[in-house]
Nucleic acid binder design. Structure first.
Lengths: 171, 171
DNA sequence: GAGCAACATTTGAAATGTCAAAGGTTTGCC
DNA sequence: GGCAAACCTTTGACATTTCAAATGTTGCTC
């Protein structure tokens, strides 16, 4: 934005501040939310149909795939943004399906570490490849430059939100 | 690394360490998802603490607030992007709390119409005002121009996604 | 006017989600 | 040594979520 445009911009800001512009954030949020829901539902449907897996299971396995030595449940909880109690159940079901193993390390018996089994790794590998393709397809009509820009700008939003949380949510 | 000091957890780890060019869409998706989760959790916490309400209840009431004559459950389902079966339970609980009323119109007895009660309208009105403020606060660090741009560009993403769904479902 | 397809909602099973409280373990400190 | 605080996970109650099947209604056709 050049300085030569500043007069126009000032006018726009005044108008925005007094009228329409008040709900920009709300409008953005609603669009983010509906878009995210739309994509989530599509991914969930495909994971189910093609792999018999759920989205939370996929998310959890993604974290374990990145840490081949396994992760403590609390760490899994943080990375997946899922509550502790929820992680317990998720891992439990994945263990029943033979995709994940649970173990308690010798050093600290408070801890449970979850780890992908060989079968889990194989399955996730296939799911991840498909998953990436689905996203490319879904966003096929969007200019790559826009995608990159969105990644940046949403990062700014995420930062701002992180700095304005009410709950005891800092470390 | 500015984000790393917050409690924000990156689901973006999946992409880490791979080549730059190829996974833009995946990278964007993961950031959208984690940001949306972050904001949702904050709003849910505040709705709970300050109004004793849940986020899906808020969403549903928002639709009814815009249509004072009420909406059929199927229409509510579409607008909130929630399945039919889910709407049944949500409306049921809201009715128990005296915030919503259910009625069957004379013309068509297949239909159930849900409508806000006076108490529901009052409560939602207060929640909506607070909700809007929370979003403004959370996004306070983001340039208004960026917010507007994001709204536009996410619209493009939503459009693209809508045109590439597998389930026969687009409008 | 009987039957059938289309429509709208509910129901039921299974999974995910939150929160708060309870259960073990470890650590630090006197 | 012993105790209390801190830590990690599980449990339990309840709300939300999906899907598929069942239920009830309407409208159309023959």
């Amino acid at each position: 934005m050049t300085e030569s445009e500043s007069a126009t911009v000032d006018l726009e800001i005044i108008v925005q501040g007094t009228q329409e512009g008040k709900k920009q954030e709300l409008r953005l949020w609603l669009r983010m939310l509906s878009t995210t829901k739309l994509i989530s539902q599509e991914i969930r449907r495909r994971l189910r149909n093609e792999f018999g897996a759920t989205l939370p299971q996929f998310d959890l396995m993604a974290q374990l795939y990145r840490e081949r030595d396994g992760l403590r449940l609390g760490e899994l909880s943080k990375r997946t943004m899922v509550t502790n109690g929820n992680v317990t159940g998720l891992v439990e079901r994945l263990e029943t399906d033979g995709l994940v193993l649970r173990a308690t390390p010798d050093g600290d018996r408070r801890v449970t570490v979850a780890k992908l089994t060989a079968r889990g790794e194989t399955l996730f590998s296939a799911m991840a490849a498909a998953h990436e393709g689905w996203l490319r397809d879904m966003m096929a009509d969007v200019d790559p430059a826009i995608i990159s820009e969105l990644w940046q700008d949403i990062g700014a939003v995420k930062s701002s939100v992180s700095n304005h949380l009410s709950g005891a949510d800092f470390d």
